[in-house]
Simulated scan of single mutants.
Amino acid sequence: MSNRAGAAGLGIARVVAHCGGNLATALHYLTAAMASAPESPEPYTVLAELWRDKPADLAEIVRDADSWRAVLAHAYVSFLEGDMDAAALAIGSVTGAQPDIAWAKAPWFNEERFLGWVSAEALAEAAMRTMDYGHDLDTEAMRERFRPWFRAIDVVSFRRPAPEALAKMAILLRACGLTDASLALCNRADSVQRIMLTEVVRAGTWRKLGSLEQAAAAFERALALDPANWSLCLDLADVRAEQGDFLAAIRLTEHGMKFRPTEPTLRAATAAYRARLTGSPSDLNELIELAPHLPNGSYRDLLIDHACAGPALPAELVAEARRIQNS
């Protein structure tokens, strides 16, 4: 191992593991060694020895604890037990919590035994878990750490091209800045079966690339596949608003309200786009009343920006809306 601290920890783990010491303590040092050099096989060799010698005790520790160390050990123990789906989900969770460490460079994650048996659904869910904490993955350093994920996605998506799973995997590729690969994976999903989720993912990728018309077209196809989906109506309305077509945006939100008339976000968007198009004080008032109930602050502020740009709105009403943004 290249890292001296990790090597020292591995030595301590060996002593503790084989001299009747506390198993949890050995596991602590082993996982520290894995974090120090994820690609090194030595910590996994020691953990495999522990699993062979004390499988029940080790299983109890990794099952009952909720620390990243336990989840990391659970990933490899699941691999040893042949439960590749559980192994994928566990390493996905650890990666989401600490993406600055290249956990997937672990030797087992790159073995054909794993790549040949993990299900597309589990790998897709694991990929989603890597994004759980909202870390920025669109950097060269992150792409290097996530390279084993890209290979796994490539292998598994060809082995079992399940459309929904492929669409979820495409979200990770997009998050890592691999927009061309994300769109290609969506196309591969379409070749099996066209589903709404694929179009939504494709729309998000086109938006990231700055192509609003392509994004709108993808949302329209998604809506055609699921016409009663109010959330899709809102997504497409937001794109049309960004393009400056507030009449189309209003028609879309009003269509969505047929299916979810009490949804605060949908009602707020309708009011904002009406205020922007017509300069209606009553619509801006409605947006002001709904604003505290919107869960997404940045989206609330965007709606207020749109509404306050409406023609000839009373200055005091605009000021009241702006105060919400600053609160």
Rank of each mutant, 00 (worst) to 15 (best):
I288R: 11
I61Q: 13
A32F: 12
G11R: 07
M142N: 12
V155F: 10
V118K: 06
A222H: 06
T31L: 04
W51V: 01
R151D: 07
D235S: 10
M34C: 14
D283H: 06
R274H: 03
T270D: 14
E320W: 02
R174I: 00
S211E: 13
A37F: 02
F150C: 03
A48S: 12
L80N: 08
D180A: 03
R63L: 10
P55N: 08
L277R: 02
A59Q: 12
L252V: 10
L302V: 10
G6T: 08
V156L: 06
R260H: 00
L223D: 02
D138R: 04
L166G: 13
A268T: 11
V118W: 01
A8E: 15
F114V: 05
L10D: 07
V156W: 01
E112I: 10
E39L: 10
D245E: 12
Y76G: 08
W103Y: 13
P264A: 10
A56Q: 14
Y76P: 09
W206K: 07
P107I: 12
Q214T: 00
V192Q: 11
V77Y: 01
L302C: 02
L225W: 09
E220Q: 15
A237K: 05
R63P: 00
Q243I: 03
R300A: 10
R274D: 00
A24G: 15
F109L: 05
W206G: 00
A35W: 10
N110R: 15
L236C: 02
A181I: 00
F246Y: 14
I171F: 10
L317I: 00
A88N: 06
S2G: 07
G82A: 04
L247A: 15
A175C: 13
A271K: 01
K258N: 14
L290A: 03
A17G: 05
M34H: 10
D66Y: 05
V156F: 02
M84P: 03
L223E: 13
M84H: 13
A70Q: 07
A269F: 05
L277P: 04
P227S: 11
A184E: 04
E121G: 12
T25Q: 14
L313Y: 03
Y133K: 08
C308G: 03
H74W: 06
L317Q: 09
F146C: 03
G177P: 05
S182F: 07
E289D: 13
S157E: 04
L277E: 06
T278N: 06
E242G: 07
A269D: 05
F109P: 08
G210V: 12
A307G: 05
H135K: 04
S280Q: 08
C176P: 02
A70N: 01
R159G: 09
K54C: 08
L303R: 06
L173V: 05
A104F: 02
L223N: 00
K54Q: 15
E164P: 01
